[in-house]
C-alpha cells in the first residue's frame, strides 16, 4: 500500500504489471525507462534468467513530479509470467496499489491470457484484495501482429467489468505511457479517497 512520508514530503506507490509469459510486461518497463528523463528515474533492476525471462521481478522507480508539495514516486514492478513461478507472483503483489494487466493479443495466447487473469484474481484474493476494488487497467499488447484478435473479442473474454483499456505495441511505445498515466491517475484518486 502507499507510503506517505510527511517528513520527506513524499508519496510512494506500488504498481504491478501482470500477465502471461512473453506478453510484454518487461518491454513496457524498458520503454518507460528509455523514455523517462534521467532525473526522474532510478536504475531499472531485472532479476532474469540467462535467456532474459523474468525470474523474480523487474523494478523501476519513477519520480513523476509534485502534487500539493509532495513528491510522487511510483515503484513499477513486473511479475514473472511463466505459470510455474506462481509463488513469486504472489509475493510481488504484496502491498500493491494498482495493477496493469498486459494481455497478449495473439489468438494462440488467448487461453494463457484468461488463465493469467484468473490467477491474478485468485492471488489478490489470497492477499485480501478484491480486483474489482483496486485501481486496474488492461493493456492489449502486440496489436501490430497479423494474428491479433479483435478488440471486441478481447474485451469480452478479459474485461467483463469494462475497466479502462488501451491498445499497445510496447517495443514502439504505442499505448505504454497512456496505460501508465491511467493507472497512476486511478491510484492517486484512491489515495485521495482514503484521506
Amino acid at each position: 500500500m502507499s507510503f506517505i512520508n510527511y517528513s520527506a514530503r513524499e508519496i510512494n506507490c506500488k504498481l504491478v504489471f501482470y500477465g502471461p509469459g512473453l506478453c510484454g510486461k518487461t518491454t513496457n518497463l524498458q520503454y518507460i525507462y528509455k523514455k523517462t528523463n534521467p532525473d526522474s528515474k532510478g536504475k531499472m533492476i531485472s532479476l532474469a534468467t540467462e535467456s532474459e525471462r523474468t525470474l523474480f521481478f523487474d523494478f523501476l522507480p519513477l519520480a513523476l513530479g509534485n502534487i500539493k508539495g509532495f513528491k510522487v514516486r511510483f515503484h513499477l514492478y513486473t511479475v514473472p509470467g511463466q505459470v510455474f513461478y506462481d509463488a513469486s507472483r504472489k509475493l510481488i503483489l504484496k502491498g500493491v496499489d494498482g495493477v496493469v494487466f498486459v494481455a497478449d493479443s495473439q489468438a494462440e495466447r488467448m487461453e494463457a491470457n484468461i488463465e493469467s487473469m484468473e490467477n491474478l484474481r485468485k492471488n489478490l484474493q489470497e492477499q485480501g484484495y478484491n480486483l474489482d476494488q483496486l485501481p486496474f487497467v488492461i493493456q492489449y499488447n502486440k496489436r501490430d501482429l497479423p494474428n491479433a484478435v479483435s478488440m471486441e473479442e478481447l474485451n469480452q473474454a478479459l474485461n467483463p467489468k469494462g475497466v479502462p483499456f488501451f491498445e499497445a505495441v510496447a517495443p514502439q511505445g504505442q499505448g505504454v505511457f497512456e496505460t501508465l498515466k491511467e493507472i497512476a491517475k486511478q491510484v492517486i484518486m484512491q489515495i485521495k479517497k482514503g484521506t
Binding site: 502507499s2 507510503f3 510527511y6 517528513s7 492477499q127 485480501g128 484484495y129 476494488q133 482514503g194
Partner: peptide, 15 residues
Amino acid sequence: MPDPGLIMYEEEFKQ
C-alpha cells in the same frame, strides 16, 4: 482489505 498504507510523521521520523 489488507494493511492500510504506511504514514510517516515528522516526529517519529526524527526518532
